[in-house]
């Protein structure tokens, strides 16, 4: 990584300099791994990631640049970039999605086909979800919902682990396996959406 344009110290993140505390204009092509000063890999060390978030947050958070409007504006932009990068690296789905794109794999729109059997499964979940709508907390419908939540969580985790195995080490650019991974990710998208709806059915969506 480049050196700080202000003080010459070696940078650990393109967003700012820990040594002199200033926020820097980072190269527009900076991806989440660049921002966290890491090489792209499937496995990330969650504790290390959080440590880096705290360290880099101390450099670029707008709270520490209140006196200087230009630095403060840049701090807003860079903090947003840091937060987004953290989200992508921490969340396996977003991380896989980003890696896939970078390796030239198909996008979600390009690989829309889902196996018939899976789609039938989705229809089954939806029936359970619809039945639980408005049902009492101790009704059989709600118990079915709880069982479904468990099944879906397990399935999502299993599929995510399968993706992880295919991505370590990272495959070649344009490798055929990227297509399979995209299909898995699309399935996970369905699973997450259903789990999201289950949460709202259980605890309410939160009225505002």
């Amino acid at each position: 990584m480049a050196d700080c344009s202000a003080c010459g110290a070696a940078l650990e993140t393109p967003l700012g300099c820990e040594a002199c505390g200033i926020v820097l204009e980072s190269p527009p092509e900076s991806g989440p791994f660049d921002i966290f000063g890491l090489k792209p890999t499937w496995n990330v060390d969650e504790r290390d990631l959080k440590r880096r978030l705290r360290r880099f947050g101390r450099i670029v958070h707008p709270d520490f640049h209140m006196g200087d409007p230009a630095q403060q504006a840049l701090a807003e932009t860079n903090s947003a970039a840091l937060n987004r990068a953290f989200e992508v690296l921490l969340d396996p789905f977003l991380r896989a999605d980003w890696i896939l794109e970078r390796l030239g794999g198909p996008s979600e729109q390009e690989e829309r086909q889902m196996p018939q059997a899976f789609l039938m499964e989705v229809l089954d979940w939806n029936e359970t979800l619809d039945a639980a709508e408005g049902a009492a907390a101790d009704s059989p419908e709600r118990q079915a919902l709880d069982r479904l939540a468990e099944t879906l969580t397990e399935e999502r985790d299993a599929r995510m682990q399968a993706i992880g195995r295919k991505l370590s080490p990272l495959p070649e650019r344009g490798a055929p396996v990227l297509r399979t991974i995209r299909q898995e990710l699309n399935a996970i998208r369905y699973l997450s959406r259903a789990l999201y709806r289950i949460r709202d059915l259980r605890y309410g969506a939160g009225e505002i």
Binding site: L53, R54, G57, R58, H61, D63, F64, M66, G67
Partner: peptide, 13 residues
Amino acid sequence: QVLMGGTRDILLM
């Protein structure tokens, strides 16, 4: 106090 530049020890995210 943090916003006044009093300290970088505390950070709210």
